[in-house]
Design a protein around this nucleic acid. Structure first.
Lengths: 373, 373
DNA sequence: CTGAAAGCGCTTACAG
DNA sequence: CTGAAAGCGCTTACAG
């Protein structure tokens, strides 16, 4: 069955992105030899099946797609040819002809962040329910990389795009959207274009969380958040300010620290506001990564410092004290966004909308500690 | 610019998987109206660009791909046409002609499991470095769904497949592998086919973890793991048995419990081995989900019970006591698998191999507790 | 330096 | 019930 001249390279793959050089491995041990000899290593096509079954191309297409109008006998012959040849329909070719690719793209920040796991799973579930595949990639919080990825997905002609923005200018997507690519932004709003957006109530959640600390007697409350150019960070800071203002508390500059969420920076920021003559008695942390680091810093303190964090974290209930958080529903964010995407696709959606999902305050102990002084 | 008869549906998309019915929305407010009027809502093609620039198709192709042999003046005219039309090359069509799709598939168990986040990120990073996109999906631990997904990815003609198996029979992939689809299994071995496999040293890791408990004086040690049909669960149980045997301890049936990792089942299993006349004094947990539940159960006990868990978990160091674990390097698993995939693709790889990555015992307190009796 | 023709593997529209 | 022809949007191989 094997053709000695068969090559593992599909015809014309010389410029494949993967090729790094010539192999010097003896031909006899190469995986290449596993390839069937038909057509220089290529797979059988409908044409091959048609030839073998002695029928026309269209008849094979009918059988493969389960269309009616084929006699049982013809169908059997085609099926046999399919089996014998190991034919599998090339959906890329199919899709080129049909117009839609039944795939959607997801551009997120970092797959390894526990917040995005449930979100992407939810997007995937909805895609699956609509018969679509998910192509995804991470921007690593880099606006250029976000754009590069989103446009690469558009070039693959995904039917729609779910984007967790890293950048704040998405005008580069305008031609794509006009050309029919359904687009929904999640977690953070789109920048400078009019598009569907699904967000958590970052402002209200932070405000409630901080108000909770105030209700337990705190006045000197710190805020440690992500870089201010990130929308969620700015909104949560705004919520913090609002709660403080509502309580008649004048916020001091040194109580607030926005910046990268790497442990070193967060640790320094926390230590600064916890030292000096009038240290904060409570901290509000702006996201899960910040919360985790601050928990570590607080564990080293002799004083008891209250803490409320934005985003829930695993095992938060088992720490001493349990960690009080403002929880977002990451799965609901993903699900809502994906469902909206498919409603755009089936044409039932009209004008871009901004959807805000509520947050939930989960009290576990750390947010109910009284001020230490 | 807008053609009043333009429709948002690409030609022939009647049978699109997304279409659920006819919209009754007035035409004037439909997103459809955003589409340019060229070709019934379709996007401009190279042919359109060529016509507008007054050049041949091949010249447009040259410009788009940055190939040499185009005069600056011609190139400028083509570029202008591209801008004016909002042309973006259809990579699906390109790929159909070129043979390889520059995309790989990832079939995993559950994107929302914190173990798989870093693993998929690592796969994605390697794919990106090789200019490939990642298409992924979850099997939800269902062998049929794994197969359906893997074959759908093959029908899309991914160049390669990274599979975290749910099932134990992968002969269904044989025709695909023969046809040239590079394939690597991670975390669990392939079933009934010869293929590249990248695993953690589940047996050795579990054996060392249990030996650690024995070294701290324990003899009645429980094991709670995942369903026995899952390879990692079986291997870890084997490691447990080996450590016990090496220490001359006869294992009692009631010390071992394998099954689904939902909290209810695990909780019951833990409670059973912790009660009765001769309760276990230590527990070895078979994965991160089991560990988390068992930590909760142990927190409710009056007695101090030692614990070593397979898989690291976030905040494990902040619990009281800190949780001692056998840590796997999820990112290294993903990276190794993806790199092997691309080495298959560039032809430098020969025979399928089984690669085992070491685990690491991280002592934090819970595994060093002495027996309570 | 430039372009017309053929082809990648399917589906569509049409004719028998 | 069946199939030949044209076309989806590109690239390849070739000729000027």
């Amino acid at each position: 069955m094997l053709d000695a001249t068969s090559s593992y390279k599909p015809t014309g793959s010389r410029s494949s992105p993967y090729e790094t050089g010539q192999s010097i491995v003896p031909e006899t041990t190469r995986r290449a030899d596993r390839l069937p000899g038909n057509r220089y290593g290529n797979r059988p096509t409908m044409k091959d099946v048609a030839a073998r079954a002695g029928v026309g191309l269209k008849t094979v297409s009918r059988v493969v797609n389960g269309e009616p109008g084929v006699t049982p006998d013809t169908e059997r012959r085609v099926q046999e040819a399919i089996e014998a040849l190991g034919f599998r329909r090339n959906d890329s070719a199919r899709v080129l002809r049909k117009g839609r690719t039944a795939s959607i793209g997801l551009v997120l920040e970092d797959l390894a962040d526990p917040f995005y796991g449930p979100l992407s799973r939810a997007v995937e579930e909805v895609a699956r329910a609509h018969g679509a595949l998910l192509i995804n990639g991470s921007s690593a919080e880099d606006p250029d990389r976000e754009q590069e990825l989103a446009l690469a997905l558009c070039a693959r002609r995904v039917d729609g795009l779910v984007v967790i923005p890293a950048g704040d200018d998405h005008r580069y997507l305008e031609p794509e959207i006009r050309a029919g690519v359904a687009t929904v932004f999640v977690d953070r709003p789109a920048g400078r274009i009019d598009a569907d957006v699904v967000l958590s109530d970052n402002y209200g959640g932070a405000r409630d969380g901080v108000a909770h600390l105030i209700a337990h007697g705190h006045r000197r409350i710190g805020f440690i958040g992500d870089m201010p150019r990130i929308h969620t960070a700015a909104e949560r800071l705004r919520g913090y300010r609002a709660a403080m203002r509502d309580a008649g508390i004048t916020v001091e500059e040194r109580w607030m620290s926005l910046g990268a969420t790497n442990p070193e920076r967060v640790r320094r920021a926390a230590q600064e506001m916890l030292s000096g003559p009038d240290p904060v008695t409570a901290v509000f942390t702006g996201n899960n990564r910040v919360t985790v680091t601050v928990i570590r810093v607080l564990a080293e303190q002799t004083r008891r410092v209250a803490l409320v964090g934005f985003d829930d974290i695993e095992l938060a209930d088992l720490l001493q004290p349990g960690v009080t958080v403002v929880a977002q529903d990451a799965a609901a964010l993903g699900r809502t966004a994906a469902e909206r995407l498919f409603r755009q696709l089936d044409g039932t959606l009209l004008v871009p909308e901004r959807i805000e999902l509520p947050t939930r305050l989960v009290t576990r102990g750390s947010g109910e500690l009284p001020p230490a002084d």
